[in-house]
Each structure stands twice: as structure tokens, then as C-alpha cells.
Amino acid sequence: MSLTAVEVKKIAHLARLAINEADTPKYVSELSTILDFVAQMDKVDTGSILPMAHPLDVTQRLRADEVTEPNQRELFQSIAPSVESGLYLVPQVIE
């Protein structure tokens, strides 16, 4: 499975990762190699097999509808890159 530079850039964009133009060929070859490697999976026919998303066959436990979390804004925002008036700041969001 060989990826193209265009595909790699599309993936990097979906994942919001800046990659240098100069590094693109390296990513193309490394990612293609990995995809080739995982393509070994095609050796087995898995047609009727149920996919397994969880190691244990258990079901979701539910929590009671109770407010248990106090306001900790000061603590949480003490580690934020940029805040003002209690809000997290980011470059303008354009809709």
C-alpha cells in the first residue's frame, strides 16, 4: 500500500499536524512501509468474524445523576496558555 504525498498531506491536515515540505517524502515512505506491514492482516479471511472493540465482554456501568464536581476554574486555568475573563483564548473562530 503506497501512499502519495497528497494523501500524506491530507492525513496530516485531518490530524492537524504541521509537517515540513522537506519531511513529506520521509513520511510518505515510512507510512507506506507501515501500511505494507499491517497489510499482512489480509492473509486471514475474517468475513464472518465479529470485530472486538473491548478485551472483556462486559457492559457499561452507569453512574447516578449527581453533581459531584466543584468549580475548580482557577486551578484548571492556572495551567492554560491563554485566558481572559475566565475564558480560554484562541485565535478568532470564524463561522
Binding site: 491563554s82 481572559e84 475564558l87 480560554y88 485565535p91 478568532q92 473562530v93
Partner: peptide, 15 residues
Amino acid sequence: KSMHEDFNGMSGIDL
């Protein structure tokens, strides 16, 4: 919610 009022060209996020 994103608050679009201008914070010097930034948006404020309320979660």
C-alpha cells in the same frame, strides 16, 4: 461555546 466578542483578535471559549 465560542464567544466571538473581540479579545484583541481572539475568541473566548466557555466549556
